Amino acid sequence: MEARYVFRVRVRLEVEPGAEAVSLEPRTAETTLFYDAPEPGADGWLFFRNTLWRGEVSDRAYARRLVDEWLSPPVESVAFSELQVDEEYFEALKAEIAADLEAFNADAVSEVLSKYLGSSVRV
């Protein structure tokens, strides 16, 4: 069972103090960040509910702080791209959601997936 969240991240590159002969242009770089999704029901599996809304990062400042903890260059921006899952993970995710729809304030699993991930799930 495998799944990972994919984010586009822009980081700010900085020259170390004392390196006056060095300059950068541009001062930012974009990269793709992959975050392994916890198994449905395991600690942290609600990452999508707590971080995303309609396939977008719901709180950009929170996402920057979170990713900043994972990377050493300062993070300027974070954008969610997709949740990549295999069939087994996707079925387990839907089953876990279905077991507690009330926690998502929803009537159906498809509503939960749309509400938090939009159309950004790739199986």
Rank of each mutant, 00 (worst) to 15 (best):
F104R: 01
E39A: 12
L24K: 11
A99I: 03
D86S: 12
A98L: 05
A29I: 00
A103G: 07
A103E: 12
F47I: 03
A98N: 07
R54G: 02
D86K: 10
N50S: 12
F90C: 01
V85P: 04
L24M: 08
W45D: 11
F34E: 14
W45N: 10
A63S: 05
E88G: 12
A29C: 00
A37I: 03
R12F: 00
A21C: 08
T31S: 09
E96L: 01
E102V: 09
E87C: 07
A19Y: 11
R65D: 15
W45V: 04
G55R: 00
R60A: 14
P26T: 12
R12W: 06
W53R: 15
S58P: 01
A37Y: 01
Y35G: 03
E69R: 14
D59Y: 13
F34T: 05
Q84A: 14
E25V: 03
P17A: 12
A95S: 13
W53V: 09
L33C: 06
L71D: 13
E91R: 15
P74Q: 12
E16S: 03
A79C: 04
F104H: 09
E87W: 13
A79I: 05
N50Y: 02
N50Q: 12
L33F: 02
A99M: 06
N50C: 01
T31I: 05
A92H: 11
S77Y: 02
A21G: 07
R65I: 03
Y89Q: 09
T32F: 02
D68E: 11
A106W: 02
A79W: 07
E82P: 00
D36A: 14
T32R: 09
E16K: 08
S81K: 08
G18S: 06
L24R: 08
F80W: 11
E91A: 14
R12L: 04
G18M: 06
G18T: 06
L33W: 09
L83P: 07
V15T: 08
L66V: 09
W70N: 08
E88I: 11
L24S: 11
V15K: 01
A99K: 13
V85G: 08
N105D: 14
A99F: 06
V67Q: 05
P73G: 10
E82R: 15
E20A: 13
L52R: 00
L46D: 08
T51E: 15
P40M: 12
E56W: 10
V57C: 12
A108D: 10
L24V: 11
S72F: 15
L52D: 07
A98H: 06
S81M: 13
S110C: 00
Y89C: 09
L83F: 09
E82D: 09
R54A: 01
